[in-house]
Design a protein around this nucleic acid. Structure first.
Lengths: 341, 341
DNA sequence: TTGTAAGCGTTATCAT
DNA sequence: ATGATAACGCTTACAA
């Protein structure tokens, strides 16, 4: 398709290929009338620029690699959308892939990306054991930025938020509602650092307020609806069941609410549930979900900015952006009575 | 980054670049021991294949362009996930973009894709007025397949389902429940053919069963939660309000349910609601949503197969796959009493 | 089974 | 302001 090349355009316009290239990328270097002749020639012959050839010649490509855990979570999709919009505004394309929380998949994706010499790579959190290989990437001159977390390692760039703090805050809120037996349904924290920090925030709040810690009330699951439902069912079956449950993602929370409904019990009358992410639908669930709002869109845009900036200047020194989260109080949590348990 | 080239590997292994290339892509053409020497050389020097150069040389790239309306709808994300998985299995990368139901954005995306000479392009339905330019693409040798619809045009490939029939069926179901005043909340049918066919299916069912058609009960909106809610509020405010409402996407349906709840009315006691898509969460809403299941995942996988097949054989003759949808009856619709209206 | 060499369509460096 | 020309890193006939 589109087999006409710059060569042919240059002939048609009676100039050299170099001039055509200039007319395309640095129009100000070309006299107006030649520029117009070139433009006309291009239009007449349906010329389509060949970015592959350009990238090869220039030794860097105008693509950005993006890894998100899953396209099936609305909240990551929001970041992806932002990334895509920002990239397109700068005439970059994105290569997307989802790791599905699997180390091998993630590595394969990174390798696949590298083959195209992208301008940079955006990673969503990352799996345990990936840290070294990312550092190697950076050392080799590849702009990388981790999103959705605040990293301890000063050598790694990130655009994220404080998962520990955010989880601490929502747990604290539950405690302020007089809950003392609080369950936690959480994603794969043994595999993903970002998730582990949520666990740690939860635990820290419990400890700081002197609440007992029931390991059985912490359930690690995949962040899906069905897993949220199963976990909640298990929690509700316990002899001393929790009066409140924090689901470390809204998807889990939605599943959890369904479990309660299936028992003909109500949220928040019989049990309070809080989520994390503030996906769009959280405001529309029944009851509307109390949750932690995460700046998914802003994260995406900012990440692109960081990558583009690094690619342009060649300065790969780590950049850190920790954005704010906020607690969105809706109707899925209630305050216990003084003597209620 | 990764500045070592095939040249250097070939020197290291004491062979020609051509042999290295063969070892990589057609190992069977290379004697085992030379192959091993090459592999060792690559490992020792951290060689990373340069797909950009390869694509240029081979005059076709191992990328597939994908356009979906929005990453913010779970159901398109499912197709995207499937596409991405299938592509990766075949060592292809995907370039993704969302049109946001905007013609200019869609065109810009297609142009951007073309510059990379992708192996093919997958389009989700497509906007009115795009048909001619897609045909031109195909004529120029670009494999294209439209997903999520069954096209009338025999020259265009599609992997989709019958939007008319599916909508007809769910409307018929509502009618079988004795509903006679049925509202419709629907996406941008004036812009998107695929959506228009849903409208037509709805109208046809009404007509076939001799039901009156109230234009005011058909509301065109963007497929978002908030729009679903607003539309439903309007419907419920009508003097003769509908006893059932079909929302032509689950997202709209979720918004609609929220509107009913806000009026302190119940679904399906006061009004029945049916959706379309069967996004994951539809089974978990309160009440669980009766809806039309769409084979989003299968569509994605099959679309990649079609593209790859066309790219390999060079045979761009149109291929048509119309998959099945099914009505998933849950709890958001009820049967009216004999004398109930 | 392996090597030679001519591209692939741009861009960048020097000249003019 | 424009042109000549050598890369860029790989693939692919064709030859050996």
């Amino acid at each position: 398709m589109a087999k006409v090349t710059m060569q042919e355009i240059s002939k048609l316009a009676g100039v050299s290929p170099a001039t055509v290239s200039r007319a395309l990328h640095s129009p100000h270097l070309v006299r107006k009338d030649t520029r117009e002749r070139i433009t006309r020639a291009m239009e007449k012959s349906d010329y389509v620029y060949n970015a592959t050839a350009g990238d090869l010649s220039r030794k860097r490509s105008s693509m950005i690699g993006v890894i998100i855990p899953t396209t099936k979570s609305l909240v990551f999709s929001t970041s992806l959308l932002a990334i895509q919009e920002a990239a397109q505004e700068n005439n970059f394309s994105i290569m997307a892939g989802s790791s599905k929380y699997d180390l091998e998949t993630e590595s394969a994706l990174i390798s696949q990306f590298q083959e195209r010499r992208p301008a940079g790579i955006i990673l969503t959190g990352f799996l345990k054991g990936q840290q070294a290989s990312i550092k190697r990437l950076i050392r080799n001159g590849m702009p990388c930025v981790v999103i959705w977390d605040k990293l301890a390692d000063p050598d790694l760039s990130y655009v994220g938020f404080d998962n520990f703090k955010a989880t601490y805050a929502v747990t604290e809120y539950l405690i302020s509602l007089r809950h003392r037996r609080i369950g936690l349904i959480i994603g794969p924290y043994s595999k993903v650092d970002r998730v582990r920090r949520r666990l740690e925030g939860f635990l820290a709040a419990l400890k700081d307020y002197g609440l007992p810690h029931h390991p059985r009330m912490i359930i690690e699951k995949e962040p899906t609806l069905i897993d949220g439902k199963e976990a909640m069912a298990r929690l509700m079956d316990m002899p001393e069941r929790p009066s409140a449950v924090l689901a470390a993602s809204d998807t889990l929370a939605m599943g959890a609410m369904a479990a309660v409904r299936d028992m003909d019990l109500g949220v928040p009358e019989n049990v309070s549930i809080a989520g994390f992410d503030d996906i769009d639908i959280a405001a529309y669930s029944n009851p509307p979900l109390t949750t932690v709002r995460v700046p998914a869109y802003e994260i995406g845009r900012l990440a692109v900015k960081v990558i583009l900036d690094m690619a342009k200047t060649g300065d790969l020194r780590a950049q850190h952006y920790c954005l704010d989260t906020s607690l969105i109080i809706r109707k899925s949590c209630r305050k216990l009575q003084k003597n209620e348990t």
